[in-house]
Amino acid sequence: MDSLVVLVLCLSCLLLLSLWRQSSGRGKLPPGPTPLPVIGNILQIGIKDISKSLTNLSKVYGPVFTLYFGLKPIVVLHGYEAVKEALIDLGEEFSGRGIFPLAERANRGFGIVFSNGKKWKEIRRFSLMTLRNFGMGKRSIEDRVQEEARCLVEELRKTKASPCDPTFILGCAPCNVICSIIFHKRFDYKDQQFLNLMEKLNENIKILSSPWIQICNNFSPIIDYFPGTHNKLLKNVAFMKSYILEKVKEHQESMDMNNPQDFIDCFLMKMEKEKHNQPSEFTIESLENTAVDLFGAGTETTSTTLRYALLLLLKHPEVTAKVQEEIERVIGRNRSPCMQDRSHMPYTDAVVHEVQRYIDLLPTSLPHAVTCDIKFRNYLIPKGTTILISLTSVLHDNKEFPNPEMFDPHHFLDEGGNFKKSKYFMPFSAGKRICVGEALAGMELFLFLTSILQNFNLKSLVDPKNLDTTPVVNGFASVPPFYQLCFIPV
């Protein structure tokens, strides 16, 4: 009986604490739906499609509103004006990374994606500088992407125009580009180590996009005490870190300090320079996690976009025909596509942009946080508050993009057929937390897609009208449904 009384008292205290925290903070924060004790607004949000729920709530509470995930307040920004004001106009104040408990377990605050403060700034600055020195957006990395595009075309030829699921092959190409940047090595598509790495990356994007992960991140005790797919994700990350550590040891034994070959060499050189400046942010643990982040951000996002792009091109054969006509006119058949071609191919450029806009790969991006107490639109948001960005509300804005739910390359073309930029184009987020590999991803999408369409016609196994382009999961990332196609050599 005594234990029951204690339990009831504990629960009562928890409920009172929950109510007090919510009521004391709500006077400062933007308005929002009334949260339930302990669980907050979790029942009012469709976990399978958070973005749709945010759109519905914005119609009631406006472009800036507050939700509670458990006891934790989260300020939501919906629509271009609110997102721009926060991420661009007040970029420094909104540059923090929001709480992501599962990532905390995986990387302990290291790396480039989930770190904060001085650690994040130094690692991000170093990573950007190193990638630029190796030619991100310049010639040397373009050579690597072109080489991988040629290998991709050869792998597709091996399908002999038979029906195939493109998931694996389209994942190999961007993964190999990242391998060449980090390890100075590309792998054969049949290499077992490479296959294991690909498998872990593919599993992780599916797990991260599941409703279960949303629950884990908002009720963090689940991570330590409950079984579930989150444990598989943590094991996959541990596998990748151990693999990278092996490569780091190989580099330490063979590195030429006067001739760095890749990202690992550059990081080890930085560690050597910083060894007298303790404590340094440049450690082996930081290198492991930064490399894992580059793999995660640079492989599955690009391969998922490529997979979605081919599905949309199957669905819209008239678009595919126009792209192939432009390829034939500008590039021809006797040389590989290059980035200089893009400025002469406005329709193809528009298609690449429209694919990214339409699929809305990361509907709410990753959570941000404010780095200080900030007054925002007459609300006071306390330091450390998590900020949720609705990228969907920007990419699918119906004023900027008429009929935003329709796939239409003319969203990025003017009346004369010239490519038209849009400030609403934010597939990689915006501001200080914009994806480090934005330029690389854009290069890969253009070169891989043009190389495929230069060499193959795409054949659907069903009537294009019957192809479903609805994402199968739409949590962290929008993942396309399973499909097969035939690559018919031109």
Rank of each mutant, 00 (worst) to 15 (best):
N258W: 13
R157E: 13
K247P: 00
K72F: 04
R150A: 14
D188T: 13
T34V: 12
A103P: 15
L90E: 10
E199Q: 09
G98A: 14
S365H: 09
I215P: 03
M269P: 00
I213M: 15
G96R: 06
M240P: 00
G70P: 06
E81S: 08
S254C: 14
E122F: 09
E328A: 12
K421M: 12
Q214E: 08
C486H: 09
L449A: 02
E288S: 14
M426G: 05
G171D: 13
P221F: 09
I207M: 11
N259Q: 12
F482V: 14
Q214F: 09
Q146V: 11
P279W: 15
T66C: 04
V436Y: 06
T290Q: 04
R342G: 02
V490P: 05
H251D: 02
G298H: 07
C179W: 05
I222R: 07
P480S: 04
L453C: 06
R139L: 13
F482R: 14
G332M: 02
M240Y: 05
S254M: 13
C151K: 15
G91T: 08
R21P: 09
K119Q: 09
Y68M: 07
I74G: 02
F407V: 01
S12L: 12
Q214C: 12
C10E: 03
R124P: 05
E81P: 08
G296N: 15
D49H: 11
E154V: 06
S209E: 10
L458T: 02
D165S: 04
L314P: 01
P211F: 08
L461K: 15
E415C: 15
C175E: 01
F114E: 14
Q278S: 11
E272P: 08
E272A: 11
S365G: 13
Y61I: 01
E274N: 14
G135P: 11
I112T: 11
I452L: 05
G91N: 12
D373G: 04
F65Y: 14
S343W: 13
V462W: 01
G27K: 10
P409S: 01
R150I: 09
I169D: 05
L156C: 04
V352P: 02
V153R: 01
R144C: 12
K84M: 10
P464V: 13
L361W: 05
S209G: 11
S478N: 12
I39R: 01
T364Q: 15
V473Q: 15
D360S: 11
T299L: 09
K190T: 10
G384C: 04
I389K: 01
F239I: 09
S58I: 02
K160S: 08
C486Y: 09
R108A: 14
L467F: 04
D373V: 01
E199F: 10
L11Q: 01
P346I: 03
E104A: 14
K28A: 15
C372Y: 12
S365Y: 15
C10S: 14
S422Y: 05
N133E: 12
Y379A: 05
S95R: 04
I178Q: 02
P37F: 06
F110T: 13
I213T: 13
L362K: 10
L14H: 00
T348L: 05
I50P: 11
L312H: 04
G296P: 03
G296E: 14
E122R: 12
S180A: 07
F94E: 06
E154L: 06
L197N: 00
F448G: 00
V479G: 12
S242E: 14
M129G: 10
T364F: 14
I327R: 01
D408T: 09
C13L: 13
F482W: 11
K275Q: 15
L234H: 15
M345A: 02
T469K: 01
F446S: 01
D408R: 04
R125V: 08
P166M: 02
D262I: 01
M240R: 01
K241N: 12
E328R: 13
G475R: 09
R97K: 11
D463G: 07
M255T: 13
L128S: 14
T469F: 04
L447Q: 04
H230T: 09
F482C: 13
D188S: 13
G475M: 07
T55V: 14
H368K: 07
L131F: 10
P63L: 02
Q22P: 13
R329L: 11
P471K: 10
H184W: 05
G62F: 00
H230P: 06
P346R: 04
L445S: 05
K322G: 10
S140F: 08
L128V: 12
H78D: 06
K72I: 04
C435G: 04
L67M: 08
G135W: 12
E281L: 12
I223C: 08
F376T: 02
V352Q: 02
Y225W: 10
D89L: 09
E288A: 12
L54C: 09
V370K: 01
T386Y: 14
D265P: 03
T130A: 13
F194T: 02
A291N: 01
H251G: 05
S127V: 14
H251C: 07
F282S: 03
Y483N: 02
L67F: 10
V145H: 00
P30G: 01
Y347Q: 03
K138M: 10
T159V: 03
G135A: 12
P174E: 10
T385L: 04
N133A: 10
Q146N: 09
F448R: 00
G431L: 06
Q484M: 05
R125E: 10
H410W: 12
C172G: 07
P37N: 04
M240E: 02
L36F: 15
E438K: 05
I452A: 00
V355Y: 00
L268D: 05
M136H: 15
K249S: 09
H353M: 03
P166N: 00
Y308S: 05
I88P: 03
E155G: 03
L131E: 04
L268A: 05
H316G: 01
L453Y: 02
F126P: 05
V177P: 00
N176R: 01
F295H: 00
E274S: 13
K421V: 14
F226Q: 02
E326G: 00
L197A: 02
G46R: 08
L87S: 06
Q340L: 14
R125G: 12
V145Q: 02
